[in-house]
Nucleic acid binder design. Structure first.
Lengths: 149, 149
DNA sequence: TCATAATTTATAATCATTTTAATTTGACAC
DNA sequence: GTGTCAAATTAAAATGATTATAAATTATGA
């Protein structure tokens, strides 16, 4: 899936709900696409978008991100430092993916695999809870930091 | 385990690191003990502590909660609304427990069982990541709200 | 073209949290 | 007991992320 195709598909997603893909929104989406592996804060996104479109305002970035979260195009995650971070959701993925946060170096690794199918079934049966989404984060020491000790 | 015993054991935990259980800290811990099932924000805790000890300051509550998080006596969790919430950790529990957040009524249900043992093993093997703690939250519809439809 | 609604911008406001500086408390040495 | 020092607390101000507001701009459709 090329960048252009993904932009196109996000555009359709927006239009379905009668939102438009304005230049500012497109620039924001492009930044997210170009940094899929990072976990950018709103401020980060803002600064990067400013390179492409210097006249954009911070508030617009916030509103765009909020909109994209609503459309489930991006996930808003929170690692306990004061800021929210924004992740493009993989094309067609049902759930937000998981993260490994290293408490030493602060690195964040993505887990795309859905490891929670069984757990989800248990929750749905035992607690009669209809799961829509989940959020799983492990805190610990990453491989790199283990070997550095 | 009575309230007094738990206070005593938390006191020992503090002293081990040469912190003291001041009256303000004790009042804060008591509030947490009396609201184990709720998920209080710092502000909530502050208001409740104020009933017992009206002269306490908000900053002290924040500092106390921070300290208790450091000692792993309480867990700091975050459900995506703007505030952090604070949960007493069960006596001797290794990990912070899980939560079911209902997107309709906002209720939060606790899961004390550790459902992640298998997942944790996979993560340790496949990603060579040494897990210290985890955070799992499901978002969905609770039993109550399902029947109300 | 004109009118209306959506969007954006810049700025100000808000809210949670942290820092600061001054004061208080408590433990210990004398 | 008194004096001293470090830890803890208080109140107030500062910070930083996020949201709301009002005015200006842009797109849309009759």
């Amino acid at each position: 899936m090329t960048v252009e195709n993904r932009i196109e598909s996000i555009k359709k997603e927006l239009q379905k709900q009668s939102y438009k893909l304005t230049p500012q929104r497109e620039a924001t989406v492009r930044v997210l696409l170009e940094h899929e592996e990072d976990h950018l804060s709103a401020e980060d996104v803002y600064l990067l978008v400013k390179d492409k479109a210097p006249e954009i305002g911070l508030a617009t970035v916030y509103r765009t991100l909020e909109l994209l979260v609503e459309l489930k195009v991006v996930d808003k995650i929170n690692f306990g430092d004061g800021v929210s971070r924004f992740d493009l959701r993989k094309e067609g993925a049902e759930h937000s993916h998981h993260h490994l946060v290293c408490v030493e170096c602060g690195s964040v690794t993505e887990i795309v695999e859905d490891l929670l199918e069984d757990v989800e079934k248990i929750v749905e049966h035992r607690w009669k809870f209809k799961v829509q989404d989940h959020r799983l984060t492990f805190h610990g020491i990453c491989e790199q930091c283990q070997s550095n000790d």
